[in-house]
Design a protein around this nucleic acid. Structure first.
Lengths: 139, 139
DNA sequence: CTGCATCCAATATGATACTG
DNA sequence: CAGTATCATATTGGATGCAG
């Protein structure tokens, strides 16, 4: 399987192919929304061009390995561009591609909404934990 | 964008608290954007009120356990409401809360964008794999 | 500094069996 | 139907050491 693997996942009756597990868009969505993917994109949207360790500092808690892995996935998807400069010490800059910026825009809109509504979430959480608090859903 | 993100974490110099690992919004974001969370929300946005097994069928590939777990997390966050009817056989309906619908709206906007741009992603992927393909020495 | 490889721990996930 | 419990496995995440 090489080129032109991009037919629609026609077997779904949904408007969104992501729902189908074999659809490539599902994988991309996971790269974008995944634990580190979303934070990395967010950091790049805010910070513009960033070096590896700058990113590492911004995305609090990410390990070298995960950041590297995340960056590769995003680069492969065409969302992030990587420019290595043959200097010494090496300097590598990462930034969002135009496509990455479009994705970031909508991703950040989502993040912004979630953050703005955290009070409601926290309240809901309290109610839920009270009602079935003795069992547990999530720490 | 409307930066009414409030001071839940405070110690970050970023406009987005999610970047901080201790911030509760990060956990919520993960519930929303996680592998099954995003698909479940998407399914509910499209399908309106759905029963457990209807959801299971729509979110292709999800296991009983994961769907159950996902649903609990989303319910706890106040994004999904659960209405159990004491009939026999039991019937339980899930639907998005108003907050859940707001989240879904932005989430679906993101999904929609990603799907619409998949040709670009696929093209980028081919280029990337070509470049990296040759450095595959052995295993 | 950038980043890959490797070993090990923590989690997430999946199949199955079981209960109400 | 709507879940829960449990076990086995797959994948992820983290720390460390090494290399360009």
């Amino acid at each position: 399987m090489d080129s032109n693997a991009q037919q629609t996942c026609g077997d779904s009756d949904s408007a969104f192919d992501v729902f189908s597990r074999q659809c490539p868009s599902r994988g991309t969505l996971e790269d974008v929304t995944g634990r580190w993917g979303s934070l990395t994109i967010g950091a790049l949207q805010e910070g513009g061009t960033l070096r590896f360790n700058e990113l590492r500092r911004r995305v609090e808690g990410v390990s070298e390995k995960m950041l590297s892995q995340t960056l590769h996935a995003l680069e492969r998807d065409g969302l992030v561009s990587r420019q290595a400069q043959p200097t010494n010490p090496p300097r590598v800059d990462y930034e969002l591609t135009p496509l990455g910026q479009d994705v970031a825009e909508r991703l950040l809109a989502l993040i912004d909404l979630v953050e703005g509504r955290m009070p409601e979430v926290l309240t809901a959480r309290e109610r839920y934990d009270e009602k079935r608090g003795d069992r547990e859903g999530r720490a």
